[in-house]
C-alpha cells in the first residue's frame, strides 16, 4: 500500500553524493585541521541529509517523522553535555583523572584545582 509519489532522478543524487565523498577524502590532504573538520564532518552531515531526504523520502514524508528522528538526536546531545564534564575532561573541580601513563609519573597529582 505504498503511496505513489514522483521519483526524483536518483542517479543524479548518487553522483552528487559520490562527488561529496571525493571532497571529504581530499579535504584532509590540505593538512589544515579546520578544513579537515569541515570536509569530514560537515560533508558527512550534508550527505546524511541528502540520503535521508531523497533516498528515505523524508522530503515527502509526514513532518513528524522528521521530528521523531530529530528528538532522538537531541537526547543524544543531552547525554553528551551531561556526561562530557566527567568523561571527556581529565580534571575538574576537586578531582583529577590522569591518563594511566601520567598517573604513574605523578603520584601526588591530587590537590584542589579551582
Amino acid at each position: 500500500m505504498s503511496q505513489e509519489h514522483a521519483h526524483p532522478n536518483y542517479i543524479k543524487i548518487w553522483a552528487i553524493l559520490t562527488f561529496l565523498l571525493f571532497v571529504s577524502i581530499v579535504g584532509p590532504m590540505a593538512g589544515i585541521q579546520a578544513v579537515t573538520l569541515i570536509t569530514a564532518f560537515g560533508i558527512a552531515v550534508v550527505k546524511a541529509a541528502m540520503v535521508g531526504a531523497y533516498f528515505m523520502h523524508l522530503n515527502i514524508e509526514k513532518r513528524y517523522v522528521w521530528y521523531m528522528l530529530f528528538t532522538a538526536l537531541i537526547f543524544l546531545g543531552l547525554f553528551f553535555f551531561g556526561t562530557s564534564p566527567d568523561v571527556l575532561k581529565a580534571e575538574g573541580t576537586n578531582w583529577v583523572n590522569p591518563s594511566p601513563e601520567q598517573a604513574h609519573a605523578e603520584t601526588d597529582g591530587g590537590g584542589s584545582h579551582h
Binding site: 543531552l78 551531561g82 564534564p85 566527567d86 575532561k89 575538574g92 573541580t93
Partner: peptide
C-alpha cells in the same frame, strides 16, 4: 525525566558543578 539522571551520581565522582544543574 531525561534531564535529571545525574542526581543518582551526586557523590559518585561527578564534577561538583554539575550537581547544581541536576
Amino acid at each position: 525525566s531525561f534531564f535529571v539522571w545525574a542526581h543518582h551520581q551526586f557523590i559518585a565522582g561527578i564534577d561538583p558543578r554539575m550537581a547544581h544543574v541536576f
